[in-house]
Every structure is written in C-alpha cells, then in structure tokens.
Amino acid sequence: MKPSLYTALVCAVIITLSACSKRIYVPNMVNAPVLKEKYEFKGSITPTNLQGAFAITDNIGIMASGQYLYGFNAADPANSNDRSDNGNLFDNTTRGGMIEGGAGYFKPFGPSKKMVFEVYAGYGGGSFKTLAPDYKTGAGVDLNDYTIRNHFGKVFIQPSIGYVHRVVETVFTSRFTIANFYNSSMGTKAFENNPDEKNKFLRVADKPVGFYEPAFTVRVGYKYVKFQAQLQFSVPLNDNYDYNNSVNNVNSYFQPVAFNMGVAVNLAQWYNQAKSR
C-alpha cells in the first residue's frame, strides 16, 4: 500500500472520531465468504447487513448482499440531542441502503487447505438520505425541508486471503469500488444560508468516485455458527483528497470507517472431515 493511503486511513479514523458531517455514502459490509468446496453456503446477519454466498463448483462462487440503515428515524425535533451523529463509527441520521451481487473464484491452498484465496467482482446500487449540516431541531420543524439525498450505482472487485478453521476464521480483503452518484435532491430549506456547502453536495455527482475499502473480518465459534466482526475503511481515490479543506472537500459526505458485528452461518461438508488441531 502506498504511504499516501496509510496517511488517508489515519485521517479517516481521526475524522470519524471528531467530525459531525452527514453521510450520503456509507459502505456496506464487505462480503468475504472464503468458501472452500462445492455446494458450501455461508451467510451472515448484522443489525444493518445481510449477506450470503454459495459455491456452485469447487472454485466458483456467487454472492449477494443487502444493507439498510435506519438511523434517520432517530432525528426527533422535540429533542435537540437526537440530531447529532456522535456515534464513533456511524451516522445516526443516515437512512437508506444498497443491494449488490457478484461472482468470483476461490482456491484453498496450503498443506491442510486452511488458507483460502478468493477474488469476486460485482455490481450494486442504492441510495441514502440524511439531514443537511445546517439542520436545527425545534418545534414545528419539517425534516423533509432539510433532507438531502443521492442515488448511486457501483461496480467492485475484491481480492481476499484468509485462514479458515472450524473454530476461527480471519480474512483480509481489499475492495476497490467505483460509485456513480446521480439524482441529487434536497429539501427547500437545506443549505438555505450556506451556498458553499450546497455546491459541495452537488459536486458529489460530478463524476464517478473511486474508493479503496480494505476490511478485516474475524469469525469465532464452532462449526456451523460463529460470531463475526469486521472493521472496514473507505478511502476516496479522487482529486478532492484534502481532508483539511472543508469548503471544497466533497469527501466529507462519505463515511470513512465502519464496524459491524453479527452472526455467521456456514453449511459445509468439510467440517465433518476436518480434525481440530
């Protein structure tokens, strides 16, 4: 990884822990199944993501993922504290999601076939809406007047390498995504007194945006059911890469870090053949 990307990852963490920007792109959890054999199925569920993958041959797999964020309901005009996105790894006022599908190649390797290499590619799309940064709570406020929204389509490719055991799995994935934003819309009072911020929001749809989205996935349990956790970064690879320029930096509308926890299910014959060591 280039030094500039390391710097970007550090900046992404700092921005996430301190900023209160509104997100109109929240990366979905990376679907990294690390399948090992024909007819193996692996699925997972978290509060915001649902994923599944199936091996149709000994080396070819298909997968599908869905995401839905429902934090927009938390914005209550009667409580000024509800509008804040002070969650460290998510935006409480972003709502929407995406679906995606893909296909790819996987190959177990090593003396005991506990290492797996895979690469998937696919397409997806969706939309998010949130509240403009100048939104203020209060009696009689109509949230629709301050709502901003974008639709998008995306293509992705993601190579992964992982260690797969009946008790524990660890996976590192490098996902590269190109997203095309379109149909930007805003409420009548959004950016009412902030033309610079309005222009910045509209610039998101000027051209496709590339993202480097590495993810670290861990699954721990026994055989068919495991606890799953994933830490994911999302680094924009566009020419607005200056996190310090708040006026022109459209990247402030993209969530840079995500953390998901849930349950993974794996149905496979190799569990009956493997011996724990």
Rank of each mutant, 00 (worst) to 15 (best):
I99V: 15
E100L: 08
G102T: 05
A103Q: 01
A103D: 01
G104I: 06
Y105M: 03
Y105T: 01
F106R: 00
K107C: 02
K107A: 10
P108Q: 07
P108M: 03
G110I: 09
P111G: 05
P111Q: 05
S112M: 10
K113T: 02
K114E: 12
K114S: 08
V116H: 01
V116P: 04
F117A: 09
F117S: 05
F117W: 12
E118V: 00
E118Q: 07
E118P: 00
Y120I: 06
Y120K: 11
Y120C: 11
A121T: 04
A121N: 03
A121S: 13
A121I: 06
A121P: 02
G122L: 08
G122K: 05
G122N: 05
Y123M: 12
Y123L: 13
G124W: 12
G124Q: 15
G124C: 10
G125F: 15
G126I: 12
G126S: 14
G126H: 12
G126R: 15
S127T: 03
F128C: 06
F128V: 07
F128M: 13
F128S: 09
K129L: 12
T130L: 08
T130F: 06
T130D: 09
L131R: 10
L131W: 09
L131N: 12
L131D: 09
A132Q: 02
P133N: 12
D134P: 12
D134T: 15
Y135Q: 14
Y135P: 04
K136D: 13
K136A: 13
K136L: 13
K136P: 00
G138P: 11
G138T: 11
A139Y: 11
A139D: 09
V141M: 08
D142S: 15
D142A: 13
L143S: 05
L143E: 02
L143K: 15
L143A: 06
D145S: 13
D145W: 01
Y146S: 10
Y146F: 14
I148W: 04
I148E: 03
I148G: 07
I148Q: 01
I148F: 00
R149T: 04
R149K: 06
H151P: 02
H151W: 15
G153H: 08
G153Q: 06
K154N: 11
K154H: 13
V155P: 04
V155Q: 10
F156Q: 00
F156K: 01
F156S: 02
